[in-house]
Simulated assay, not measured.
Amino acid sequence: MHTIKEIAAADTFSVRHPVLRSGKPIESCHFDGDNLPTTHHYGLFSDEKLIGVASFFKNRQTVFPETNQVQLRGMAILEEFQGKGFGELLLKYCEQLLKDEENCLLWFNARSHAVGFYKKLGYQIKGDAFEIKDIGTHFIMYKNV
């Protein structure tokens, strides 16, 4: 049984840490804006175990003209659950929530190895690859939801 529900920022750390910040201090899992009232965190549970997370921040990326923008950050599925459709399930659920907002642009900085996953779901690359210090190569990706 799989369920998706809104969770607290700190609850995301148990998935963010091993997937996105492995070998770094747990404090590195806290993102600026995590606790703002406009930020929302969602967890995917499999038999009540948190296996995936995604966080959505009201944040503008200046390369886009749209005024209503939401940034996806910290999208992660525990390694043993990757490649089984759980990331797609979580992201599509959250996209549906954003459809209530008029003309919403969803964007994020995708790790280079995740670009194929996002392209399969209709996201496009904007601009060239860039490096995030101590994390790796990324691309800005986006989609109007």
Rank of each mutant, 00 (worst) to 15 (best):
C29K: 02
C29M: 03
C29D: 02
C29I: 04
H30T: 00
H30I: 14
F31W: 11
G33P: 05
D34K: 02
D34M: 00
N35G: 08
N35K: 13
N35A: 03
N35C: 11
L36W: 00
P37D: 03
P37W: 00
T39Q: 06
H40S: 04
H40M: 04
H40N: 05
Y42F: 15
Y42K: 06
L44R: 05
L44Y: 08
L44D: 10
L44A: 11
F45T: 03
F45P: 01
S46M: 05
E48C: 03
E48R: 02
K49D: 06
K49H: 09
L50P: 07
I51C: 03
I51E: 14
I51P: 05
G52K: 03
A54N: 03
A54K: 02
S55W: 06
S55R: 11
F57R: 04
K58P: 07
R60E: 13
R60S: 12
R60W: 06
Q61W: 08
V63C: 12
F64L: 10
E66A: 11
T67W: 00
T67S: 14
N68C: 09
N68M: 09
Q69C: 09
V70N: 01
V70L: 09
Q71N: 06
Q71H: 02
L72N: 07
R73W: 09
R73Y: 11
G74I: 01
M75T: 12
A76H: 07
I77W: 15
I77P: 11
L78S: 05
E79L: 13
E79H: 15
E80C: 08
E80R: 03
E80Y: 14
E80P: 00
F81W: 14
Q82V: 09
G83K: 05
G83C: 11
K84H: 13
G85C: 07
G87F: 10
G87M: 11
L89E: 15
L90F: 07
L91Y: 08
L91K: 11
L91T: 08
K92A: 12
Y93W: 15
Y93G: 06
Y93M: 13
C94N: 10
E95V: 14
E95F: 07
Q96G: 14
Q96R: 14
L97S: 05
K99G: 04
D100I: 01
D100F: 02
E101G: 08
E101K: 11
E101M: 12
E101W: 09
E101Q: 15
N103A: 12
N103Y: 09
N103C: 07
C104H: 06
L105Q: 06
L106E: 06
F108I: 03
N109P: 02
A110S: 14
A110N: 02
A110C: 14
A110F: 08
S112G: 11
S112I: 13
S112H: 13
S112C: 15
S112W: 00
H113R: 11
H113N: 15
